[in-house]
Every structure is written in structure tokens, then in C-alpha cells.
């Protein structure tokens, strides 16, 4: 006779599914926030509910505590990712002030973060349980599929603003992303992770962008897109001659970059 052991994770996933099914109606969006907390009593829950209402009256939220996992869960019906993300800022502020937060918050909104399936929810709970620790950042969960042929990306850019932005957005779109802030780090990560695509600035220290493009084309089957401040036609020509697949100049728009990556993926098919 087999003993069915209800594991805490499965229990958590099941509870979460129930909560979502209550408020999720097919086409509308549904935001989910999970936060690892030591405990969460009824009073705190009411307090949080009030805080969130006062911030936005129209939002219907369901706050609950998954006891076996030690997770605070919030389901926001008809809330898109932007709103769910914003709500997570509130929740983080609240739980941190109360001294309850024990790790990173994980935010998702379906269908923006991918298709809502039981497997996606299970992954969500898993991610959330793994983030228990020192860091208190907010993490965006995604279950999106990156284009098949180009799914891992290395970004080499000394400029923190654009590097972090591209990384964040690519990750949201389901790409696996590595970053490097100089040419040598880029070459190291290139050798280690063998990405499908390298997005590089031309002005890199130690090993410059041209050398990087050249090396990538000589030794790897990786594509290169240049994302640079450098607008001189001369430099563009040189980058293409060395084998760059595309050239985007800063200031840039992410949608344009994403479109070019997809186009590249189609070409590689």
C-alpha cells in the first residue's frame, strides 16, 4: 500500500491554484506575488489589505499565507504586470517595515509572464522558495519562451544603464542572459556559456568590440549585434566587415532591438 505524502511544495501549489481559479477568468490578466515571510497574522493581513486599497481602490486583491511554505501570497485579479509589479513595491515596503520579509519577492502576471498552467505555478512557487535569503530584491517571474534558435544572449557593455536594461528586458522575454562589462570578461563568458547571440558595444576596454566580433566569428557560431554610441558610418562598415549581423545605435528603443533579434532568429532557422 502506497502512502501518499503531500509534500509542502505540492500543497502550496495546490492552494495557490485554488486561489487563482477563484479570481481568474479566462481572458483577463491575473497578477501573482509571492513573498517569503516568517509568519503573517490576521492583523497584518488586514493592515496590508487596507494599505493596498488606499493606494488603488479599484483593485481586488486576495491576500493569504501559505503555511507549509512560509510564503505570503497575493493574487490580484485583472491586474497587468505593471500593476502587479507596483503592488509588489508596496508589499515589500510593508513587509520590510514589519520585519517579516525573509527573501526576494517574486512577481508575475499571466498571461504577460507566460501561459498560466499548473506547471508555471509550480515553477513560481519553486523560484520563490529558492530566493529565501539575504537579498530583498523584487524578481520578475517569466515563463516566456525565447525564439528557438536564439535563446541565450551575452551583453557586453561598459555602460551600466543600458546593459542592465537590456538584460532585464531580455530576461522578461525568456532569454537566458549573461553580462560583461569589458572585452575580456566577455570572451571568458563567451567560452563558458556559448551563447547564441552577443550584443556588444564597440567601446569596450581591454579587448575592444571589433576584436570581440572578430573572435566570435572566427571561433563560434554565435551571431553579433552591435549596440553602440558610435554613429560613424566608417565604424559601422568595419563592424559589418568583421561579421556583425546588425548595428543599433544609442539612444535605442528596446522594441527595435527585440525586433532585430527575432529577425535574426528567423534567419537562423
Amino acid at each position: 500500500m502506497a502512502v501518499i505524502v503531500q509534500e509542502p511544495i505540492q500543497e502550496g501549489v495546490w492552494q495557490l491554484t485554488q486561489r487563482i481559479q477563484d479570481s481568474y477568468s479566462g481572458s483577463a490578466a491575473c497578477g501573482v506575488i509571492l513573498a517569503p515571510c516568517a509568519s503573517f497574522n490576521q492583523k497584518a493581513m488586514e493592515q496590508l489589505q487596507r494599505d493596498m486599497r488606499s493606494d488603488r481602490s479599484d483593485a481586488a486583491s486576495d491576500i493569504f499565507y501559505l503555511v507549509p511554505n512560509g510564503l505570503l501570497g497575493v493574487v490580484l485579479s485583472e491586474q497587468k504586470l505593471a500593476d502587479a509589479h507596483y503592488a509588489s513595491l508596496l508589499i515589500k515596503d510593508f513587509t520590510e517595515r514589519q520585519g517579516l520579509l525573509e527573501g526576494q519577492l517574486v512577481v508575475a502576471s499571466f498571461p504577460e509572464s507566460g501561459e498560466l498552467t499548473e506547471q508555471a505555478l509550480s515553477q513560481l512557487v519553486h523560484t520563490s522558495l529558492q530566493t529565501r535569503g539575504e537579498s530583498r530584491e523584487i524578481q520578475l517571474f517569466t515563463n516566456q519562451e525565447a525564439p528557438h534558435r536564439v535563446s541565450s544572449v551575452l551583453i557586453a557593455d561598459p555602460d551600466e544603464v543600458s546593459r542592465e536594461f537590456v538584460k532585464l528586458r531580455l530576461e522578461m522575454d525568456g532569454y537566458e542572459v549573461e553580462e560583461a562589462h569589458d572585452g575580456r570578461e566577455a570572451l571568458e563568458k563567451l567560452a563558458r556559456t556559448m551563447p547564441d547571440l552577443v550584443i556588444t558595444e564597440l567601446n569596450l576596454t581591454i579587448v575592444d568590440g571589433y576584436q570581440l566580433i572578430d573572435r566570435v566569428n572566427r571561433d563560434y557560431s554565435t551571431e553579433v549585434i552591435v549596440l553602440t554610441d558610435n554613429q560613424l558610418p566608417k565604424n559601422m562598415i568595419r563592424a559589418f566587415e568583421l561579421g556583425a549581423a546588425d548595428y543599433v545605435t544609442k539612444p535605442f528603443s528596446y522594441s527595435e532591438l527585440a525586433w532585430r533579434i527575432r529577425k535574426l532568429a528567423l534567419r537562423r532557422m
Partner: peptide, 17 residues
């Protein structure tokens, strides 16, 4: 940091930040 992540992640959403 988290707020800036919120800003950057939602630069394409229809509603204002």
C-alpha cells in the same frame, strides 16, 4: 533599485508609470 526595475520593466505598458 526595485522602483527603477519597476520603471524599466514596464516602459512599454499602456498605463503611465
Amino acid at each position: 533599485k526595485d522602483y527603477l526595475t519597476y520603471v524599466q520593466a514596464n516602459l512599454d505598458s499602456a498605463e503611465p508609470l
